[in-house]
Amino acid sequence: MTIKFLSSLAKGQPGILHHCTPDLVAFEYTRGATRKPHTLLFIGGLGDGLGSVEYISDLVQALDPTEWTVFAIVLSSYYGGWGMGRLGKDIDEIAQCVQYIRDYKTRQFGKGKVVVMGHSTGSQDVMQYISATNPRPRHPVFDREWIPILRPDIDGAIMQAPVSDREAILWVLHCGTERDSPETMRQIYDKAVEDARNATYEDHDSVDTIVPVSVTARIGYPPTAAVSSRRFLSLASPDSPEKPEEDDLFSSDLSDEQLGHTFGAVGSRGVLKQKLMVLYSGRDQSVPPWVDKEALLRRWQAVIDAGKQEFWSPHSMIILGASHALSDPDQAEPRRILVERVTGFLNDIQQE
């Protein structure tokens, strides 16, 4: 029998549920009436939901005596919605939440700082938020009746566990699974890609088609999640590294030219006002062994700072021994380091 100890969040946390829009909510963790002008807005990864990333409890506790509160947004792509979601809609919703927080905090306390922190695919949201054109490009299918939102600026950005979904899939294909050999996995994957390309949309190209759950489950996705052909192709990005899809931002084989469209575009967009911190997990289960993590971070830093604006935070690091979400039983020390880095970063943002 496995015993799972409940985090302080699982036991219950006081807070305020905010309606950023009629359909978009965020939860603010509050533990008292202390003046809190500054905000850390947290974004989870694929399959996450409110409170599902355990180390949030550590951050909430550490920030209790400071002037920072933690907001956790509930994106429409949360829980099982990630398979039908897209980064473009995510960053529009984050923009709405950031604007709400700025207005709300200004009314309460005056102008404060806002930092956006993403875990896993939340890191892809963060990178798109600070590097995409503002407003982002319109999607030919899903933005027919929607105008992309002009994103308000943010003071700082944090990416934790910014891994490549494509390389994670390639690792599964390389190793196989308990059920399928590498050869069988490659056949399943190749057919899924071919089918998704041949029929990405239906009903006059107005709605997504769905990859069979029997296929996505064998690749490693939850059997309860419907994954659209469009999102599958975005995550798998079969034409990378030459033509990376929307979700393929962090693969180790992307060229400096490709990184220039993301990390290298941060300075020209004007959305990020101060620094970006990257916290890469040293023992991330989603990262294949061929990825040189130290070299990858050095490349990202070189590209983002090529414009001489020095957006890269010196608090960035690889947290040795850290798992993807720092949720394993042996993660007390990595979580301590993560909290130390985040609080130090926020203090620097506050002082500038």
Rank of each mutant, 00 (worst) to 15 (best):
S77M: 08
S255L: 05
F311I: 10
L6A: 06
D239Y: 05
T69D: 03
I91K: 12
K113D: 05
A95P: 06
A157K: 04
T30M: 12
A196G: 01
T184Q: 15
Q331N: 09
D239H: 08
M127D: 13
I147C: 07
E333L: 13
R35Q: 15
Y280M: 04
I169A: 03
I318L: 13
R283T: 00
Y79N: 14
S268N: 11
L59K: 04
S7H: 00
V98T: 04
K308D: 14
L233H: 04
S123E: 10
F250E: 03
P37F: 12
A217N: 11
I158C: 01
D247A: 13
E246F: 12
M185T: 05
V339E: 02
G267A: 13
P148S: 03
E257D: 08
P244T: 03
R269D: 00
A132S: 15
Y280Q: 06
P14K: 09
L346A: 08
L63I: 03
R107L: 08
V266L: 02
S8F: 01
E333F: 10
Q124A: 15
F42E: 09
D125T: 14
L6E: 02
P14V: 02
I188H: 12
Q309R: 15
A332W: 14
L41C: 12
E246G: 03
I154W: 08
I169T: 04
P334A: 10
P223E: 13
L63M: 01
K273R: 14
L150P: 00
M277R: 00
L150W: 00
E167P: 05
S240L: 11
V114Y: 02
I304P: 01
P14N: 07
A199R: 14
M117T: 03
R298E: 11
G81W: 14
G176K: 13
L279R: 00
Y79C: 08
S7A: 00
V215Y: 05
A225N: 09
A217V: 08
A325C: 15
C97K: 01
G88H: 05
L40K: 14
